[in-house]
Design a protein around this nucleic acid. Structure first.
Lengths: 355, 355
DNA sequence: CTGAAAGCGCTTACAG
DNA sequence: CTGAAAGCGCTTACAG
């Protein structure tokens, strides 16, 4: 501890201590090779000695990027998004970027505040899963080619986007339920007009029904909050109605897990008395009993692609808009109800164990 | 669009357009009242007209704080932490701070990288739940009075800290299990030597047993990963052993929820054939069936206190170290097993519904 | 291989 | 109430 630390140790202090210029010290820090080995060593020694901490903010101001990226999510407590966040943060860290996280809790005004704050920061770009609302354009209008923004999971017209083929996913789910014997199948979760993903999945649902010559019954489509509670309450409403369904496709796994509990609350056995399909394949889906049959929408793949897309967009702002649509996959587990006993012996044996 | 935007619109551009000095423009932006109303309006008009975006980074460099806070968490996919994060982010946003999020996934080297990066950023301070390891001091040694760091949920000796009274929490849980008839009670989850919280809860567990004159059996203490899978596997190991327990206290709710599924996997009924108590009271605990009896460790309260503590620490770095220990509370639901039927009529009726 | 000077976009005393 | 100048901690050409 050669000297009393008054405020911050700067490059100038290092330069003085190592008896070089500020520029040379800077070159050493950034690992520019053109510095003589002896000089480099002397500088590194001073850095250690004085406890120098690099100031990225100052560097960012001079260079024209911050190596910080904003990540705005609509509900961090939803496991799906938590898993997406991990993937994004990982990918960005690898590229040397820091992540600024914001959680909107589906609150539009919080979203707008976060967008502004992060842009002011300034972040080099923003990754966002927008809140539930129809008129996206409002909050995002000023980002065009001006500021790099990539949407994920929920589409934003006019911006780069990574998401899944929602229609196809719903279609796969309904076909599966039909195949194992279900004829009266409900759709639970989300709100039309608030969520394009909901509209698309509903489209897939209806399309599948019509292909399978099952009559569409609007009473079987029930909106709900996109959390456990929503599934819990929604499925009970469905079952208590007259002419109830025998199975349900839920908007996502979290809703589906809630629905499982709702069925239990009514004294029924999910996967035996009633069929449930989720959407996303979060890790809990494999862990619960009965295992949740679901549509894979890999959070890690989604997160990685989104991060990748943003990094590209930051590098070349002028590039045309890119949209990546990931393909869904049916993951069969044990939650689809009795009919399925007569279907597949391997699955049957799993089913057996439950009793 | 008066002029072609070449790079960034700065205060100087605003000043030129509004025909004032840079200083005056700055005063307007920061809402300093000493500016004449007509001048203010002229400046605001130019800001809108030119699409000016405030540059916080530049301001931070000049003032001596960034209004950014680092938040490092060991596992964002754990609902408990997700709920804590929401609370922290909320509180910080209210105070005008931006949150930089880092997830370590319990990886020590990631933790060290994040600490450094955030400090370099520079964040004004860091909130951290450290990864699982004994020698905390290593990674945190250089933060003393130098840089504001507040720990939460997992203690870090020598730093500000907010957490719960783990010993007392475990004690409450065991007393409850004993009261409703359990005599052979296991402890599941965590790893001694890696986690002080585990040591403390274990201490409470043993203390309760000894007070209740129940013999301590080390075979009933089984370590596990702190996730759903850990609970799932661990409880099955416990039940399959000879002389199995009739109930288990889990390190946290996530482990407990996994244990519930593990019990189902063995064809038993959680809350009927086997008792389970969790720890934390995450929102899923109220939602599952049977409802999870648990020890409340309110994530929102924890997060808010931690944020508060950091804000104070940032304001007065010299202040003595503060430690806040929140008091746990027993939340009785339906997961504690058959003995409990003979106990409480209100709960019995809930239990009834399950059949 | 190394150094002096200018500048990134703000704010902060200090004059007037 | 408003303006000119210096400075926060870096990096970037440009000389030598």
């Amino acid at each position: 501890m050669g000297k009393l630390q008054k405020s911050r140790v700067t490059l100038l202090d290092i330069a003085a201590d190592a008896d070089v210029s500020r520029s040379t010290a800077s070159l050493v820090i950034r690992n520019v090779p053109s510095v003589a080995e002896t000089t480099r060593k002397r500088v590194l020694k001073s850095i250690k000695k004085l406890g120098y901490v690099y100031h990225r903010g100052a560097a960012s101001l001079r260079r024209q990027y911050s190596h910080a990226v904003g990540l705005i999510v609509s509900d961090i407590t939803n496991s799906f998004f938590a898993e997406v966040i991990v993937a994004i943060e990982d990918r960005l860290a690898t590229a040397g970027f820091v992540t600024l996280l914001g959680n909107t809790s589906e609150d539009r005004s919080k979203e707008e505040r976060l967008l502004r704050t992060m842009q002011e920061f300034p972040a080099d770009g923003i990754l966002i899963c927008p809140t539930l609302h129809g008129e996206f354009s409002k909050g995002f209008a000023h980002f065009g080619d001006v500021f790099p923004v990539v949407g994920f999971a929920r589409r934003i017209p006019g911006l780069d986007y990574v998401g899944i083929d929602n229609e196809q996913g719903a279609l796969l789910a309904i076909e599966h339920l039909y195949r194992i014997g279900h004829r009266r199948i409900a759709f639970l979760g989300g709100n039309p007009n608030h969520l394009l993903a909901m509209d698309d999945r509903l489209k897939g649902y209806q399309q599948a029904l019509s292909q399978l010559k099952v009559k569409f019954d609007p009473l079987l489509v029930v909106p709900s909050d996109l959390n456990r509670r929503g599934g819990f309450d929604g499925v009970q409403k469905l079952i208590k109605a007259k002419n109830p369904p025998t199975a349900v496709l839920c908007f996502n796994d979290v809703v589906a897990l809630g629905a499982m509990e709702g069925i239990r609350r009514l004294g029924r056995k999910p996967g035996v008395d009633f069929g449930i399909v989720g959407f996303n394949n979060i890790s809990d889906a494999a862990q619960c009993v009965p295992g949740l049959t679901t549509i894979e929408n890999s959070p890690s793949q989604l997160g990685e692609s989104a991060a990748e897309l943003l990094l590209k967009r930051i590098e070349q702002r002028g590039a045309p808009i890119r949209t990546i649509i990931l393909q869904p996959k049916l993951i069969v587990r044990e939650s689809c109800g009795a009919p399925f006993r007569n279907q597949n012996s391997q699955l049957m044996s799993k089913e057996e164990k439950l009793r």
